[in-house]
Design a protein around this nucleic acid. Sequence first.
DNA 1: GTGAGATTTCGAATCATTCTAAGTCACAAC
DNA 2: GTTGTGACTTAGAATGATTCGAAATCTCAC
Lengths: 148, 148
Amino acid sequence: MIRNLTEQDKEHLQEALIKSGQKVTPQREAVFTVLLAERDHPTVDEVFHRAREVMPGLSLATVYNCLETFVGCGLVRQVNHERESTRYCPNLAPHAHFRDKETGRVHDIELPPEVLKSLRSILPPGFDSEVIEISFHGRAQAKDHHSN
Amino acid sequence: MIRNLTEQDKEHLQEALIKSGQKVTPQREAVFTVLLAERDHPTVDEVFHRAREVMPGLSLATVYNCLETFVGCGLVRQVNHERESTRYCPNLAPHAHFRDKETGRVHDIELPPEVLKSLRSILPPGFDSEVIEISFHGRAQAKDHHSN
DNA sequence: GTGAGATTTCGAATCATTCTAAGTCACAAC
DNA sequence: GTTGTGACTTAGAATGATTCGAAATCTCAC
């Protein structure tokens, strides 16, 4: 179920938006609420349908806009797997993604700092990386736990 | 320039195709030749245009088909970055990819076995991964070396 | 050389995403 | 209070990569 944002989450959203010179709008709050409510890496379409339950007039274009805005101000991450629809993830801690071949579900995999460091170390001099994406693809035993 | 396949490459192609019950055709040879000739991670469209120089009647759909076939029998790897066109890479050794923000060019980054191992070790029990994709995104000093 | 099945071809269809232009809103200036 | 400004939202059209469908062609075993 979609619950309202906690005061803390609301502040987090407001701060990030205002810091980058943008406004807090009902649509942005609704989309952000959806993202936090179920952290199952929804696609734009899934976010759209979930958000419509709460705000029926919301348009798909706005969902695209909101998500792009959030990515821009560092509130959420995009997750891409091959050419499938882009998914969105409010987990900002460094982590990898595991996509289950059977269910299509995406799980977050914690990424310990030393592993991240060893990864960075494989870059030859002169290569300066801001973003590292790590994705696994395979089978996960169905445990149906939360995927963040 | 596009040179012909070496005998060795030709055998490699034939073996892989036949092993998975498929046929060697002039189109598949042409596409494979293009992939080996310039290992700059071309998009389908780039492969298409390069291959047309050698085989003018070749169709785009066939290029898609050939590349899919090659991926299926393990001859080449797909490389995806966000939602850009899929690129193709005949380097089968374990490696990561680095995409240069400025040029869009993709470089292969060697992946030492111990780093690969440490990466695999972050998967919780029950997660079984066949494929790991690692991609960096940032700036590379323009050295214009070969990108494989 | 023939036939069965695989492959190629062209163009149409699909699907996620982006664009466009008009409409709306919040708020500041007058 | 009205007006202006700029950001935001909206619906629908446009785009671009990829896939599909159906007919024509090729390949290889017999």
